[in-house]
């Protein structure tokens, strides 16, 4: 009896003014026919400490950010048995409660999908050349301190 063939690992990176919807994200992951699909959505938070945010403005070194996201996905696939994964990051103004970043991972079992997805968002925030400027309710703006 032969072993059923798996589809090749599929990655997707999109960085731009618009990103696909959550329905499209789940459709992308579901094609892996795995047992665990984990989707992380980073959204603009309204309250940070004692200040109220109205929007975040994102900018990127787009070609480098795309290349680095591809490298992150490849590294994740070396650490966990990833079937499908994507990183989608929006640029420009993202108002409160809207999604700035979607990261999805499909694996055969849930634990590795959670682990890989957590690693991807955590590592993106330290390695991918994207920056955000916060606009507050009082009209002030400020670049958010970054980290490597």
């Amino acid at each position: 009896m032969s072993t059923p063939a798996r589809d090749p690992v599929t990655f997707d990176v999109r960085i731009g003014d618009a990103i696909p919807t959550m329905d499209e994200a789940m459709a992308f992951l579901s094609q892996a026919e795995g047992g665990g699909n984990v989707l992380f959505a980073g959204t603009t938070r309204r309250i940070t400490g004692d200040r109220e945010t109205v929007s975040l403005f994102y900018e990127a070194h787009v070609p480098l950010a795309e290349a680095e996201c591809e490298r992150l996905l490849a590294e994740a696939a070396r650490q966990w048995p990833v079937l499908r994964a994507f990183i989608w990051h929006r640029l420009g103004n993202v108002p409160v409660s809207e999604t700035s970043v979607l990261i999805g991972v499909a694996t055969a079992h849930r634990e590795e999908a959670f682990d890989a997805c957590y690693w991807l968002i955590d590592t993106l925030k330290r390695r991918v050349p994207i920056w955000k400027r916060e606009r507050f309710r009082d009209g002030a703006t400020s670049w958010v301190p970054g980290s490597w």
Partner: peptide, 10 residues
């Protein structure tokens, strides 16, 4: 050559 300050995406 890009001069990159610490990043804050996500």
């Amino acid at each position: 050559l890009a001069l990159l300050t610490p990043v804050s995406g996500g």
